[in-house]
Amino acid sequence: MRRCSVPPGDDVVLRVENLVKHFPLKGRIPFTSGGVVKAVDGVSFDLRRGETLGVVGESGCGKTTLARMLVGLEQPTSGAVRFGESVVHEAKGRELRALRRRIQIVLQDPYTSLNPRRTIREILFQPFEIHPDVLDRRRRLDRIRDLLDLVGLDADLHLDRYPHQFSGGQRQRIGIARALALQPDVIVCDEPVSALDVSVQAQVVNLLERLQEELGVAYVFIAHDLSVVRHISDRVAVMYLGKLVETGPEASLYDTPRHPYTKALLSAVPVPEPAGRGQRQRILLTGDPPSPVNPPSGCRFRTRCWQATETCATTEPPLAAGVHPVACHFPLAA
């Protein structure tokens, strides 16, 4: 179980303010001209220095779109991602180049995130070629060797190999080394272990934790595996259909979930001890998730919620402020 070394409210490095991303459907899907996919629809949070914020939710809830906006790969429809005094999606020229150094991303698939035609030496040299002022040319090879050593790879053996000559776990380690090359303050990890075997997942997660302790980097860790998120996160944010429905410290959210959707997600997590498997109440949600093109009125979870009332259909519950906020008219008892 992790504990954040930074007190709440101190050293905010990334601030997300009412972030929205709508994708127009015109010409893409028949009979939907003029509609939009509401992939992310009003997400706000702060990320503190040295903290890990876990983001969880079903496939299609908007996690990857959120990740791409955090690093400036996707322009938001409205809202802002602030890094210090800069707004990520408004930055141009030198300001944008500086932001690229401070916010990095580790992509989901280690098989496609590395250029198959480049050696590991060339892949790790590339950040310094794009940002030549970061490090003197004569010191770059030493820095690359240090990066490989930091992620548990042998430079003498691996520098001149190609990505296809590595295992999935080794490739993800190379991706992490590339993200660390420019010494960023924030790394967005978009499903970084979902394509790996369970034993390799543990190695990569433990590596990320060790690097955070040594370097003080902050993570936004996006995943659908709640057990992995609990292991690495200081705080957890739960997404449903483009919105955050509950956030809070890892221990509080996992031990006393207050949103029905969070409780349903946690009830599906496998219990490792056979003796405890019969003690958990499994919650089966009925129906499919609503379409992000036409989400339900009021609370978006109400069509699958076992305690929804008329109020849930007419009024959208806000995500109130506090240590453990929840967007629900009838939150579960803490």
Rank of each mutant, 00 (worst) to 15 (best):
R2L: 15
V16S: 06
V16K: 05
E17T: 11
E17M: 00
N18C: 14
P24N: 04
L25D: 06
K26A: 15
P30N: 04
F31Q: 03
G34N: 05
V37D: 01
V43A: 13
D46Y: 07
L47N: 06
G50N: 10
L53M: 12
V55T: 04
V55I: 10
V55M: 04
C61S: 14
K63S: 08
T64Y: 11
T65N: 01
A67V: 07
M69R: 02
G72F: 02
G72L: 05
G79W: 11
F83V: 13
G84P: 03
V88M: 01
A91H: 07
K92H: 14
R94L: 15
L99S: 13
R100F: 03
I103H: 08
I105T: 02
D109M: 12
D109N: 15
T112M: 08
S113T: 12
L114V: 02
R117K: 05
I120L: 14
E122S: 12
I123P: 08
I123S: 04
F125A: 10
Q126C: 01
F128E: 08
D133I: 09
R138W: 04
R139S: 14
R139G: 06
R145M: 12
D149G: 14
V151R: 00
D154G: 02
A155Y: 05
A155C: 08
H164K: 01
Q165E: 15
Q165M: 13
G168Q: 06
G169R: 04
G169W: 00
Q170M: 10
R171T: 01
Q172Y: 07
I174K: 05
I174S: 10
L180V: 13
A181R: 06
Q183C: 03
D185G: 09
D190K: 13
D197W: 02
V198T: 02
V198S: 00
Q201S: 05
V204R: 12
V205N: 04
N206C: 07
R210Y: 02
E213Y: 00
G216R: 00
F221G: 04
F221E: 06
I222F: 15
A223F: 09
H224A: 05
V228L: 13
R230G: 01
A237E: 01
A237V: 02
A237G: 09
M239L: 14
G248Y: 12
S252F: 02
D255R: 15
T256M: 07
H259L: 03
Y261V: 12
K263P: 03
A264S: 13
L265G: 10
V271E: 10
V271A: 04
E273D: 15
P274D: 08
A275W: 07
R277M: 03
G278S: 05
R282P: 00
T286H: 13
G287H: 10
P289L: 08
P290E: 00
P292N: 09
N294F: 09
C299N: 09
R300P: 00
F301Q: 11
C305N: 06
Q307H: 05
E310C: 08
A320Y: 14
V323R: 15
H329R: 07
H329L: 09
A333E: 13
A333F: 14
A334G: 11
